[in-house]
Design a protein around this nucleic acid. Structure first.
Lengths: 194, 194, 194, 194
DNA sequence: TATGAATGAGCTTTCATTCAT
DNA sequence: TATGAATGAAAGCTCATTCAT
């Protein structure tokens, strides 16, 4: 197993442990055990426990941003794009429940993340939404007087809350695609210029 | 200082400390110090550290729910109610920044809370929103095919994300009332039956 | 057992452990065990492990300086004073072997101490010697061209090395009083103005 | 680079690191880095970390003993020999400050070394001094009633303390040659038979 | 009720040493 | 010989909680 591979093995193990135990209740030794490496090995790849969480987030969000952008390019109408965005976002929670759990619940347990770090990658994700809105405004589809950054947060917040529900609840009262559809429709209807 | 009073003094101190340090990084001794009480005294009023957080949440959310309900009773049109709800929610973040910080950022640091407890009080808060939606649906103002519980989470998520932004960002790009207005309008427009 | 008492109990335990194991090989838990206190209790009285060593040094050296000064006041002739100083210094090593061991061998294992801290208390001790020399020079007994500070270190170094030998060697080839006498005589003879 | 050469490279690197960080705070990996060698390579040449220190000490002290003996052979009068010894010892601290630092401060940080090992090489060094004294006693120059081994430690201790001062102090209050002269004179004057 | 000194389990992190290559 | 990634034991320190006063 080469370096790169071991790095990923540790991140994967960490994802599982964080999701199961929560960030603060996770023990580095548990991650090491899951990854079948020695405790000390973790520290050859990560500065400390928090660095594991943040690295995990960076890696996954980078992947997600890339994936989302690719998917959105296949559609041209801003309305379709927004609808698709909602669907992709919520589908991810369904596909990788563990990751969703970490991002929605555990990531927020890191002060560093919540208070200092969040910016870079998270803002890039928000930017994707804001760009869709701007596109819609430019093409006259969406109302010109709505603020893209407020809406971007609104969209993200809506989906994030639904995803949190999805992740933390056992007996779901709706499936993600229907929810995505509902959210998308309301947002679009709410923004189209009459 | 009587019992009830001391209980509240401790909760108030806890609110400040949790907001500043985050739940896991807060020390019980720090809360005791802020409340001008001995460490041991805390345990006469609360079962443990987590219980402080939960009690704080319960107390504040009870107050908020009561306040919100009272305010909403003053309005009759579901659209006005929803708009008002958005405004009240965001105004609270503005008025009691510390509380907002605790609820948005720190609450999520308590696993037990996020995973098991959340239900009761939080659901009651969500119920307020769902009731508005249902009212709108019954009166034919809102579309009948939208799921109230999905929308309730959507509304809460939107507002929560915006108020997280509001709380964690120094230089704000918008004020809460404008944001409340934007969010409310989109939601209403998005749900009204054409 | 009151606070002051516990503080001293810990220091006493530390003295034994440091002497036996050496500073770096001593475990805080071992000191706690010896002192019959919990590990954490140590940290109520000392900032960290190094602080224990420094506190021990300060406390003992303060006591020693006081004791030495008192003894020296009983004698007036600088030659007698110097002789007496040699005797007291070496006698202390004999009387409290453990302390001598800590001071001579282990103290040097604390970097901070050796490199930065040493000054204050150690210099006060050296000053006692330098004062004797100066007194002798002033009264015309000792040569005027000898540098007091060089001689002070010479005296300390001589005694320190002999007491290191005394502390670390099992089968002694001489007793401390004879050694003190020899060292004192040579120094005095070597400094008297002919 | 051949074996012998690499061995010396490592020792040289160790000398620098030990002097800078102290024995216990030195990392084997740091020594390896300084020597431009892999961590594991160190263990091809030395048994363990302590062995590096001991080897360093042995190598340097062997060299020093040889050098001192050669220098002393050039002089015949025991008084001149003693004076010369003082001068050589202190000059060495001046010439190789790093080595002096290691020997004076750091050597004492290795327990095993201080308590068990010290003997052989260190005793050989002390023997040089004792031999000078004995020579003086035999030739009737020094008093017959002084114990050579006590004086040998006295001489070493004096010089060692002065060179510790020299090594650890930035702003020196005297130069080594003057100090050597002072120390030598006092010792000689103190021992000559009247 | 109130105190706050004392507890001690449990964590992260370091680093000397090993060993497969 | 040489490498350096991997090991894993070990220890300092924190802090929620307890309990004698």
């Amino acid at each position: 197993m080469k370096g790169e591979e071991k790095y990923n093995t540790i991140l994967k193990a960490a994802k599982g442990v964080f999701a199961k135990e929560g960030f603060y209740n996770s023990k580095v030794s548990e991650i090491a055990k899951e990854a079948r490496v020695a405790d000390g090995t973790i520290y050859l790849y990560f500065k400390n426990k928090e660095d594991i969480l943040i690295s995990l987030f960076e890696k996954e969000l980078t992947r997600i941003i890339k994936l989302v952008k690719e998917e959105l390019e296949k559609v041209s109408d801003p309305r379709d794009k927004l609808q698709k965005f909602c669907d992709i976002h919520l589908s991810m929670a369904e596909e990788d429940r563990t990751l969703a759990e970490v991002i929605q619940v555990e990531l927020r347990q890191s002060n560093k993340f919540m208070r200092e770090y969040k910016n870079k990658y998270f803002l890039a994700y928000l930017k994707i939404i804001a760009d869709i809105i701007d596109e819609g405004k430019t093409s006259g589809i969406f109302k010109k007087d709505i603020k893209s950054d407020v809406v971007a947060r609104m969209v993200f917040g809506s989906l994030d809350e639904i995803s949190t529900y999805w992740v933390t609840t056992r007996r779901k009262r709706f499936n993600v695609h229907d929810a995505a559809s509902t959210v998308g429709k309301i947002l679009i209807e709410g923004m189209v210029s009459s």
